[in-house]
């Protein structure tokens, strides 16, 4: 562990901070991508699940002092459980209603946290350092990479296919024997889990959390990352999260007019690049080419031309 510490010490703290921000953003945006990009259910309450994770995680550190890994897992599970409980009634609603309901739910969560003694009301919580020998940046990127791998696996599995079927056509999906309510709830729970874990990381990285930090604008923040990269695209989400988490640090304009840019971005992307800025680029093929292997699609075509 000492080695990890010394690596962290070598990196410029400013750069480190940006890297950690990107890592957290990836976890959060991937969570939303599961719900919205892969399953097609627009959630405007992602920040609320993030706040549930953040406060749970902070309170676990303060009151119980559990190891950080266990702490994050518990925070994620609690966010997921609340997500599933909320999802059960509202996921029966169609797209637009669902969006409004998640937004309304997020506002309720914020108001509740602002009125609870245990979360220190409007004053917010100061979060002590996490109980972990591994330095925070490694933790964040470890979780980010695990999330990326998990969502990649999920998307191309039987489970993920069911989610994509629901996104594309609910009636046809049902006629294929897919229990759409159950899958929607599971997808919502997975997304909320990742939001909760991201929230836990966020709380311990910033050392301070306030219910007002997790409002509608935070949800839009995460939504913009996903939209920039392309709905449903994992590589795109990583790209979008990286760009938008780093941009304010490099571009003065982005720091000042961030939400203005996001607003314009959402409209622009939907009208001109609905598949994301890099939509249509096959990342798997690019990686395979880069390491000197033939792209998967080419292989398949060859196989068929032979047969």
């Amino acid at each position: 562990m000492g080695a990890l510490q010394s690596i962290v010490a070598m990196v410029d703290p400013y750069v480190l901070q940006i890297l950690v921000n990107i890592g957290i953003a990836i976890v959060l945006a991937l969570g939303l991508n599961v719900i919205t990009g892969i399953t097609g259910q627009l959630s405007l309450g992602h920040a609320a699940f993030m706040s549930i994770g953040a406060f749970t995680s902070a309170l676990i550190t303060i009151k119980l002092g559990l190891p950080f890994g266990l702490n994050l897992l518990l925070s994620g599970i609690i966010a997921a459980a609340i997500g599933a409980a909320i999802g059960y009634p509202i996921l029966r609603l169609t797209g637009d209603y669902l969006a409004i309901c998640t937004l309304g739910f997020a506002e309720i969560v914020k108001v509740v946290f602002l009125n609870l003694d245990i979360t220190n009301r409007a004053l917010g919580l100061t979060v002590p350092p996490p109980k972990s020998p591994i330095p925070m940046p490694f933790y964040v990127w470890g979780v980010a990479i695990l999330s990326i791998v998990f969502v990649c696996f999920m998307k191309e599995s039987r489970f993920g296919r069911a989610l994509k079927a629901i996104r594309d056509d609910e009636i046809a999906a049902e006629a294929m024997g897919i229990n759409i309510t159950r899958y929607k709830i599971q997808s919502f729970a997975i997304g909320s889990f990742l939001a909760g874990v991201g929230g836990g990381l966020y709380a311990h990285f910033l050392n301070y959390i306030n219910p007002s930090d997790f409002g509608f604008l935070k949800s839009v923040d995460i939504l913009s990352m996903m939209v920039l990269g392309g709905l449903g695209s994992i590589a795109g989400t990583v790209f979008g999260a990286s760009v938008l988490a780093a941009a304010p640090e490099f571009l003065r304009f982005m720091a000042q007019y961030r939400m203005l840019v996001y607003g314009g971005l959402l409209v622009f992307m939907m009208v001109f690049r609905p598949n994301g800025l890099l939509g249509g680029v096959n990342f798997t093929d690019l990686v395979l080419r880069a390491i000197g292997r033939k792209p998967a699609t080419a292989e398949i075509n060859e196989r068929h031309n032979k047969g």
Binding site: F153, S157, R158, F159, G160, K164, M176, G177, I178, I190
Partner: peptide, 16 residues
Amino acid sequence: LIGAHTRGTWDLTGSL
């Protein structure tokens, strides 16, 4: 493959 959904058994755990 989506049509074959009910022929399969591995769910979320299968993704993991």
